[in-house]
Amino acid sequence: MESTESYQVKLEVFQGPLDLLLFLIRKQKIDIHDIPIATITKEYLQYLEQKEKINLDREAEFLLMAALLIYIKSQMLLPREIPLEEEEDPRQSLVYRLLDYQKMKAASTLLRKKEAEELLKWKRTFLPPLLEVEDLDLIEVSLFDLAEAFFAVMKRKEKEDFRIIKRKQYSVEEKIKEILATLKENSYLDFLNFFARQATLEEALISFFSLLELIKARRVIAVQERLFQSIKVWLMKDPATGHN
């Protein structure tokens, strides 16, 4: 049973105002070339009202579209002495944009299918992101090595001229998430490079604690291919599930 009334989707799932508008048009089974602007404006505004606070950075476009819809509605309501020519329909340019957008969405659907087909074929370009630690003859780095490397980087950083513009709060939880995300993307993390990138001493310290936390929980492993070579941090496989 499908009930259009109770079918509500959150604003966040839409890629933009056109996406939302298209969804409403489809839901109402409206002809895109002849949009009942009053109805659709009402529906559209209802979606915006679902959100108590609008995130201006991300959702300003949604507000802009609302303004445009209201503008078009007011244009349509104005009494005119001479009826408008078809090209002068205030909805016209919006319809063109919607049609273009609809085409692009359809093209995306086709590309999604191709992506799925292609992902099943493995090519030489693919490098396995996960390292099987037991397969490699690596030296696991001790805590002392890590600390030593960390202080070496910090010494180097000390010489740099720090000008802190704004104070940012870092938390270990956030850093842990950040490190894990980087590892998932890049498969490993170069210890020296990673700390050289940290903006402030505070951030570097938090990062170091986070890393130690992760090592303790055996979620990552710090290894060297050979003594005196750079330390690399790899993601560990979860022994229970076989992935991380």
């Binding site: 999604r112 992506e115 992902l119 074929k121 493995w122």
Partner: peptide, 26 residues
């Protein structure tokens, strides 16, 4: 370019212990 066949995907993933490949976001 050399490529494996689609029907062998599951065996490759088992070997590499990869649940699934990442897709592009919408």
């Amino acid at each position: 370019i050399f490529a494996t066949k689609p029907e062998d995907d599951r065996w490759i993933r088992r070997l590499l212990r990869i649940e699934r490949k990442n897709k592009l976001s919408p």
